[in-house]
Amino acid sequence: MKNIYKILLVAVAFLAISNVQAQTQKTVSEEVQVTGVCKMCKERIENAALEVKGVKMATWKPSTQKLKVYFNTKKTDLVKIQEGIAKVGHDTEAVKAKDEDYKQLPDCCLYRDGVEVH
């Protein structure tokens, strides 16, 4: 029986800690314009956002060209997130991707060259 109590204790402690953590963190959600065209872009954009420390969740929709991003305001801000996305070649509301980064994109994702959302 001893083992089981240990396990229960650890589990309860874990739940308590994760709860406390959640309360001390300041998580907000924002929407920003990000230009892209396809499912491949979606994965690239979302992963670029998640690469930024402090970003919790990122969802980009090709149809709306909007990225919804949840992040911890103590660790990051919207500009840093947009810089991260621009670095993989996608223009955002505040940060335009450098030409050299844009050129890294595969052909199907070249939104500046007339490839339409698909």
Binding site: V55, M57, A58
Partner: peptide, 8 residues
């Protein structure tokens, strides 16, 4: 209980 570490 379902949640994330760092990000999704």
């Amino acid at each position: 209980y379902q949640s994330i570490f760092w990000n999704t």
